[in-house]
């Protein structure tokens, strides 16, 4: 079984596209491309994506 990469307490791992606290990378993926953001930053990004989707809808 693959070993996961793990975020530290209160943080989320991301490579800009994938987000997670514990991530099992697919074959060929590079763990070094991942970095940590805070949970607050993550929530803000989710909100931002959500608003962008709704604006695109209403537009």
């Amino acid at each position: 079984m693959r070993e996961p990469i793990k975020a530290s307490e209160g943080h989320i791992l991301t490579n800009g596209e994938i987000y997670g606290r514990k991530i099992y990378l697919a074959e060929g993926m590079d763990a070094s491309s991942f970095y940590e953001i805070t949970e607050e930053e993550y929530e803000a990004r989710v909100q931002e994506t959500e608003e962008a989707e709704q604006n695109a809808d209403n537009g």
Binding site: M1, R2, P4, I12, I18, Y19, G20, R21, K22, I23, Y24, L25, A26, E27, M29
Partner: peptide, 14 residues
Amino acid sequence: IFLDFPENWTLSLM
């Protein structure tokens, strides 16, 4: 335990 989790997929747990 994930049985037969595909190698071509990344699994993220939140």
